[in-house]
């Protein structure tokens, strides 16, 4: 079974249907880039995978577990918020606007999950957190508060914070869109090395270069539906659908 399986996912806000039946599979170790115009529902879909939004119809499984539900005796029971929190431990998320905890240092941000959520010992977690900061190239910024870091550095700390939970899956929602152009590279480098290490990732991005070189598969979303999917070479260089062609003509 694929690590992520989404079938017929629908989601409306009020009267507007934002996701109109999305099917998607993400294999273990696969990197999938979600592309599409603004308002296509890319963020909404990502948030559904992490149960930050509830879905109206369809089902999403992560590692064989139905997101937002507990199956028992052939029935699915909707989860309480506490139980949903437990499910989210296995899925890391990186936000466009970083969302680091401003009242904690970089190191404390990374330690927060393992200590407060998993209840692990501080000393052991601290060593791991320092290693993660080292991995994203920020060992020397461990004691800095988010406000003292550049956007690129904050985003790398945010990636380390998500990794500290040892997730099976990482979700990235336009992780470089809020960054100055010269800072985009350092974040993409970290994501690239993560992909090389075999992390399963769903990445919403407008960085076509990143999609081309790192993604195993590109999924193109328009108006809440998947219009085209395939290898980067197929979708990016030889798009079949007019909507994909129009979009790529604008961003390339």
């Amino acid at each position: 079974m694929a690590l992520v399986e989404a079938i017929g996912v629908r989601k409306s806000f009020g009267h507007t249907e934002v996701l109109r039946g999305i099917d998607m599979e993400v294999e273990r170790g696969e990197v999938v880039c979600l592309l599409g115009p603004s308002g296509a529902g890319k963020s909404t879909f990502l948030r559904c995978v992490n149960h930050l939004e509830t879905i109206d119809a369809g089902r999403i499984w992560v590692d064989g577990v139905p997101v937002g539900f507990r199956s028992h005796g052939g029935k699915l029971y909707e989860l309480r918020e506490r139980e949903a929190a437990h499910q989210r431990r296995d899925v890391g998320m990186v936000f466009q606007r970083f969302n680091l905890f401003p009242h904690r240092t970089a190191l404390e941000n990374v330690m927060e999950g393992p200590v407060q959520v998993l209840g692990r010992g501080r000393a052991e977690v601290r060593a791991e957190a320092l290693a993660l900061l080292e991995r994203v190239g920020l060992a020397e910024k461990a004691g800095a508060y988010p406000a003292q870091l550049s956007g690129g550095q904050q985003q790398r700390v945010a990636i380390a914070r998500a990794l500290a939970m040892k997730p099976k899956l990482m979700l990235f929602d336009e992780p470089t869109s809020a960054l100055d152009p010269e800072l985009v590279g350092e974040v993409l480098d970290v994501m690239t090395s993560l992909a090389r290490d075999g992390m399963t990732m769903i990445v919403v991005t407008h960085e076509i270069g990143f999609a081309r070189s790192v993604a195993d598969r590109v999924v193109f979303l328009v108006d809440g539906a998947v219009v085209e999917t395939g290898t980067p070479a197929d979708v990016l260089d030889n798009p079949q659908q007019p909507r994909t062609q129009q979009f790529l003509a604008k961003v390339l």
């Binding site: 992490n50 606007r97 905890f101 009242h103 927060e112 999950g113 407060q116 914070r161 939970m165």
Partner: peptide, 24 residues
């Protein structure tokens, strides 16, 4: 975004309130 970040690392609502929202 602070609450969402807290949720995304698996924090329960009570822990989120105590560790993330109230201090800020």
């Amino acid at each position: 975004g602070q609450t969402e970040a807290a949720k995304s690392i698996g924090m329960t609502p009570l822990t989120t309130l105590r560790r993330v929202v109230l201090p800020q």
